[in-house]
């Protein structure tokens, strides 16, 4: 499992976030909330093996991440960064297929099947024949999502640990596709045992789909727990600096909603 204990992360020797302890459990969605610059993406980049941990421990299957080869990491962790780009025109299916590169043992037939499945899961099957650079930002985002799904689903035996790190995956998506994406992720976590960390800005979307939430502010963790427990007016004030009320969802009485009031 991907586990951080008392992790301190930052870039170029400047610490951005201290004292983060978390474990990405199979079957669970961990949502990360925080204001701009709170260190969400730095945390994700550290967990993704891009940045070295400044202090504390960061392990994958009890082995320090810094001592694992990128190829070995890629076999149990997929990452979807923000703002996808493509230097030269690749066919959409080839972009999605790159997700299987860490698994050279996947046969061409299995690969085609995987790509089909990932495209269906990302609701992007109808985009497969289009030119990638001709797609809209949100459509490109869904293709990249399919690519990462290919990576975490490729060559997976039951019980294999696969972590999925998503950095604002809903940023350029319309409300329907925001909903669909998180629904897909939640379903895959349940059915395939994926361990998911997702950075979100929409508090209510996070409350609806995440099992656990991690709230960041001022360079440290403000709250960590189930949505009902951590989404309080006081927490919203310290995270976003905004007054908020927590109200009952008008349709589903068991759910809470956060309304910002200024």
């Amino acid at each position: 499992m991907l586990r951080a204990e008392n992790l301190c992360c930052g870039r170029h020797g400047v610490a951005v976030l201290r004292g983060v302890s978390l474990t990405l459990q199979p079957g669970q969605l961990l949502g990360v909330l925080g204001a701009n610059g709170a260190g969400k993406s730095t945390l994700l980049a550290t967990l993704a093996g891009e940045l070295p941990a400044m202090s504390g421990s960061l392990t994958l299957h009890n082995q320090p991440l810094s001592q694992m080869r990128p190829a070995a990491q890629a076999r149990c962790r997929g990452v979807l960064p923000q703002s996808p780009s493509l230097a030269f025109e690749l066919p959409v299916r080839a972009v999605v297929g790159t997700g299987a590169y860490p698994f050279p043992e996947v046969s061409p037939a299995q690969l085609e099947h995987l790509i089909d499945r990932a495209l269906v899961l990302a609701d992007a099957s109808h985009l497969a024949s289009r030119r990638y650079t001709a797609l809209s930002g949100g459509e490109q985002q869904r293709i990249q999502f399919a690519r990462v799904l290919t990576q975490v689903l490729a060559h997976r035996a039951a019980g294999d640990y696969r972590a999925l790190l998503l950095d604002e995956p809903t940023a350029s998506l319309d409300p329907k596709h925001q909903w669909l994406l998180l629904q897909t992720v939640a379903q895959l976590a349940r059915d395939e045992g994926l361990a998911v960390l997702v950075i979100l800005h929409d508090v209510n979307l996070a409350a609806q789909w995440c099992d656990q939430l991690l709230l960041l502010a001022g360079g440290s963790v403000v709250a960590h727990g189930p949505p009902d427990a951590v989404l309080t007016p006081a927490a919203m004030m310290s995270v976003y600096g905004m007054a908020a009320q927590v109200v009952m969802h008008p349709v589903d009485a068991r759910r809470r909603m956060v309304c910002f009031v200024g």
Partner: peptide
């Protein structure tokens, strides 16, 4: 091919 996606992405792909 992985580099076409970006350097971070290439690293994430192993």
């Amino acid at each position: 091919n992985a580099l076409l996606l970006g350097e971070r992405e290439a690293q994430h792909l192993g």
